[in-house]
Design a protein around this nucleic acid. Sequence first.
DNA 1: AAGAGGCCCTGATAGC
DNA 2: TGCTATCAGGGCCTCT
Length: 288
Amino acid sequence: MPELPEVEIVKQSLNKKIKFKKIKKIIIKNRNLRFKIPDNFEKLVKNKIIKKVERFSKYIIINFKDDTFCLIHLGMSGTIHLVKKKEKNDFTNTSFYSSSKLPKKHNHIQIEFDRIKMIYNDPRRFGFFIFIKNKNDLIKRFSHLGPEPFFKKFNIRYILNSIKNKKKNIKNLLIDQSFVSGIGNIYASEILFLCKINPLRKVDALKLKECKKIIYYSRLVLNKSVIKGGSSIRDFKNISGKQGLFQKEFKVYQRGNLNCLKYKCKGMIKKIIISNRSTFFCNICQNN
DNA sequence: AAGAGGCCCTGATAGC
DNA sequence: TGCTATCAGGGCCTCT
């Protein structure tokens, strides 16, 4: 599910619903996420008040009032659900109802607030919840990540410098989070299609004009997706249960053997595997 | 030492 | 229907 736009939608929803609320209770049903949740996690987080919810790259950052943090990553299959309580002060688990459809299995973490509870669901358990004790540790946690496409730092000089003498292909560079953070497997294909660059092109062969396009279209695609409410491969829903609409905008992703959608292009979308991940491109307008 | 590939895990879908 | 194989939005770790 989650690349930068999807995580941004989740962050926005959380800010609307749980900002300034106090954590009353935590129930962890399965501690074995990507990183095992330590036994003292509940104690550390209980009674904390949420100052705000932020996001960097594909990470959700819950910022508590005392400037400690909870860092969340959704991995491949993580979703967050908010469930309202029917009755005030009723903590029995029968008195909740779901605004979106709550999955039956894999609801690993439940965090209860006054009139609402937040549930973390993750079938594949590639995601994680981590408690972070101060801002310094949080920054350390992100130190290996490159800028988001929107940052000023993601400029032409940065790109030229990053591709110099590099032998990898542009598809792999775009999903390399230490180069630029937030782009995942879907948006990498979409961005390269708009740039008209073949995903297998070696980055040291990119022209100045193509580098400029990469900046422009990375920003455009991610922005547009946020505006559309994220994309919806399989079942991406935002936290209120609404489907994202960006998948309707996919030009190449999951369109193998279909016609290229570029005006007057007679090409066909091809699916290839690059470093074990599906990659889609047009055999004519990206034939370079 | 940059870059490719394996691996963590479950579920949906396709093909027989 | 029921089996098996393949694939899935990420990122950490290990090899070469």
